[in-house]
Design a binder for these strands. Structure first.
Lengths: 170, 170
DNA sequence: CTAGTCATGTCAACAAGGCTGACGTATTGT
DNA sequence: ACAATACGTCAGCCTTGTTGACATGACTAG
């Protein structure tokens, strides 16, 4: 539909105008605001922010994960993460237990209260995602994921793939 | 490929598991970091941040735009935007001229220096977008844009569509 | 013309959430 | 025994967002 030069490895190369690429860039910008809008609204009522949401999300996804592990996925410093974890633990949303095999590690879990918040956040985010998926159709959804995956940094793609091929935490 | 119930208006409804939706959510999260990574690297050498990038991008896209207009697109307070604009103007990257028809308005343009920075930022971002598009293929690209568009808030979609159907600023 | 509204700029104060650097304490591996 | 690792924490700094208040000049409706 839009090919011209032939790539090196049998790959068909696309001819892509700056215009087409710019549209993609702007779509990412505007869509990401929608993507975070609903959880942000819920969180702001609770004196939490997006950083708390991320921590909660990934603890939910990988129950028992360690602090170091979370650090690698979130890509922030331990001081930043610690500030968030401290408040979540203090508020009884997250539990931190000393590792059995390696006592230096702390294993993180959501408490019932934490799981309840996680559910309300991800319900809101899934609702929007669901309606976007429905509006666009199944073929579009597959393409959506392909492009996003190709856009990730290598390291983040590894984290992504490791997560995605794992059963849901719930 | 994945339909089941019939929608109201001839629309085919998709059956979407929480699992599928969650993958999309995580893909957005990891991809957005890649999306901003390259410009962020360039900007951090110049004591600018993502906020400056956004202002520069949209001034480039809509030369002569007003402050109020930019405010609506960026969705921040005028105090936030003003802080950024002030530094860009002081550093000679952006020019602000009194409106001809309405003298209350200020029309914003990139200077040569500002345009040069814009180019280096968008080159970096387009390179990544281009390689993602190539890796995913043209059908995937169409789907990518469709899903993102459906994910936007109504107001943001209006801004997006107005921009996208406009010739490139360069 | 006058009153009200609008576009913009600015000051002050505050919060979230990044960052660096430094230090301390267990615990583990060599 | 010693070095490396996992974690927690203190202090301080930056960017970028917020609210609230106030000022100026320029339009606009009555």
């Amino acid at each position: 539909m839009n090919q011209t030069p032939q790539g090196t490895s049998g790959q068909t190369l696309l001819f892509l105008t700056d215009e087409q690429l710019r549209k993609g860039i702007e779509a990412m910008f505007f869509a990401y605001r929608g993507f975070t809008a609903d959880p942000d609204r819920i969180l702001s009522d609770l004196a939490y922010g997006r950083a708390h949401h991320r921590a909660i999300h990934f603890i939910h996804r990988s129950p028992g994960t360690t602090v170091n592990n979370l650090l690698a996925i979130l890509g922030v410093t331990k001081q930043s993460l610690n500030r968030v974890l401290r408040s979540l633990i203090a508020d009884g949303l997250v539990s931190s237990t000393v590792g059995k095999r390696d006592k230096r590690e702390r294993h993180l879990h959501l408490t019932d209260k934490g799981a309840a918040l996680e559910r309300s956040l991800s319900d809101a985010q899934r609702d929007r995602m669901r309606s976007a998926y429905r509006a666009a159709g199944p073929a579009a959804v597959a393409g959506f994921r392909q492009v996003l995956e190709a856009m990730m940094d290598d390291e983040m793609r590894h984290h992504y793939l490791a997560l995605v091929d794992k059963p849901d935490g719930r």
